[in-house]
Design a protein around this nucleic acid. Structure first.
Lengths: 342, 342
DNA sequence: CTGTTAGCGCTTTCAT
DNA sequence: ATGAAAGCGCTAACAG
């Protein structure tokens, strides 16, 4: 049906116009709603469009002043983590509802890649950015570097950067969960966390240690293991805790990677019959199937998809909203702290 | 430092040129490597770039003939499924290595949304498309509609569409796993699957039923439950199986959503002490933590990230490779069938 | 209702 | 080594 040569360039308005026997303007008008074009002519144009497989070049449209690309740049740290998949979905849905599309890049917790991604996004004329910052640097996100492009930081804050930010209520979530664990009688409560430079990790540690301190308990350095960024490292850390002469009776885990690693360590020992007392696990982030484990569990749960949606909403507010240049906002989404099994 | 008014348009080459006291061409040359520009002049240009926070407009660049957008359009069905998060990561990594960026859309298993996404991507001048098709329609992906833009179908095939496709070795994986289950002595083996229109689901069903037939076993319609697209539906389906007068001793689950739902159903009964015999679960797709369940489990595992990477590689082969117009390829990635616990 | 002109930001080509 | 012109695909603005 189409007589294209193997790699013909995409057809343009001009070719459509020629085939339809009209001027490019008439094609353009037809494609933008058809105001001021006779129905009959419109039909001819549409036929030509179909015959050539023509698609309007959005990039060419967007270079004209006052027009924007309709792209939102999203940089996240680890798409392999289901948490961020859900997050990205929340962003995508909201953004799509507002006629935008998401360009997604994965930084892999690497500041250099994040910097590249942001620069690339800006060059692509994205209308706005949503960044889950790796932490450890803020220059690449400074307004001066970004021109007029608004940024929303999600999940993690960045010190020294004034920008819209959506976080979870990390401190209170961790505090409340730890408090409930203490109330249940635990005194030796360990902490497993990801990189200290990650703001969620330190906020959750703050909540944890505040609860301990308020209860008159010391934060025992022997029980605090931080820096595990993946499941494997977390598992090893948990094994170290289990190997202590006086192991903790409960473990607070600052994110789902650490929770899963800990569950693996516990599960392996259970199977080997090498675990006299199963520690209670208190973890931030939902984990599929965790509730079915043979481990007393308390989850601080929340909805990453809602977090993504909220970040997108804040960004769109800057883009489309009336007070596009109000001071930066900080939103903390609530978390829900479960109950310990009896 | 920057004296931008609240919503000044992004600076252009001309403004940089003016500030540096040169012509736009010199700016352009400097930014493209600096060939034929005096070092001293280059420095002046770079200073001006920094001072203005200038970023070259990629969209403007890409409208010129012979230049492409550097964007790859990716449409997946369900980003909330960790499987597709990993898949997207595989695509992103390979694509980024080749200087491209990924525009990601979620179809939510809806053909209409998928069609919109594809049309939008084409309008955005993506260089290529990677689609996990919802199934149920192929017109929007026909070459005529896409102009010259290559597509790679991933994970699922589409009938009546000639295009590069990467699948898993669904049939053999399901066959082998079912066979091993039969060899272990099982005779009543149920099937839980997602929508019949999804090609993976039917391919896996084919493997399952072939193994049964070869062993002289009938496919019992009572034991075949298909169409569960999410965890909740899968759980309910599994409960129905458990409630049968003569429940299956093993269940083949065609994807991770069904496996997780089944595990929930089983786990709940176990806790309630209402499960005389725990059925063996045979599931396609890896599931985090599944190996820690108190359920005899056989997983047909594979790497969704590798699947994404392979799809990206096939696409880039079309774009950059020498034989860009060879006939469509079909690749089936191997899966690994585990062993049943003794 | 339809066409012509001009110009968006950038760079290739052709001077100088 | 640098600049001027011209044009990529598209559509406001202005004819007619």
């Amino acid at each position: 049906m189409s007589n294209d040569s193997p790699s013909a360039p995409a057809p343009t308005v001009r070719e459509v116009a020629q085939l339809a026997g009209v001027s490019p303007m008439t094609v353009s008008r037809t494609l933008s709603g058809g105001k001021n074009v006779r129905a009959e002519v419109q039909q001819r144009v549409l036929d030509a469009v179909a015959a050539l497989g023509y698609h309007r070049n959005e990039n060419a449209r967007s270079i004209r002043p006052g027009h924007s690309s309709g792209l939102i740049g999203v940089a996240i740290t680890n798409l392999a983590n289901p948490y961020y998949g859900q997050f990205a979905l929340g962003v995508e849905e909201v953004v799509a509802q507002h006629g935008r599309r998401m360009v997604l890049g994965n930084s892999g917790e690497d500041l250099g890649r994040e910097t590249q991604l942001v620069a690339d996004f800006v060059g692509r004329q994205v209308e706005g950015l949503i960044v889950v910052p790796t932490g450890g640097g803020a220059e690449h996100l400074q307004p001066a570097r970004l021109g007029q492009i608004p940024v929303v930081l999600a999940s993690r804050a960045v010190e020294g950067l004034e920008a819209d930010t959506v976080l979870l209520d990390d401190v209170n979530g961790a505090y409340e969960a730890t408090k409930r664990t203490i109330d249940a009688g635990h005194r030796r409560i360990a902490f497993l966390g990801n990189a200290v430079s990650v703001s969620t990790a330190s906020r959750r540690f703050d909540g944890y240690s505040r609860a301990l301190t308020e209860a008159g308990l010391a934060v025992d350095p022997e029980l605090v293991l931080r820096g595990q960024q993946d499941v494997h490292a977390a598992r090893i850390a948990m094994e170290r805790l289990l190997d202590l002469a006086d192991p903790p009776t409960a473990v607070f885990s600052a994110n789902n990677r650490n929770t899963i690693g800990a569950l693996h360590a516990i599960g392996a020992r259970q199977r080997a019959g090498a675990l006299p007392v199963t520690p209670t696990l208190v973890g931030f982030d939902d984990v599929e199937l965790a509730d079915l484990m043979q481990v007393p569990l308390l989850i601080v749960s929340h909805d990453p998809r809602a977090l993504g949606a909220e970040a997108a909403r804040m960004l769109l507010e800057r883009l489309d909203g009336p007070a596009a240049d109000s001071p930066p906002q900080l939103v903390e989404l609530p978390v829900s702290v479960g109950r310990l099994p009896e």
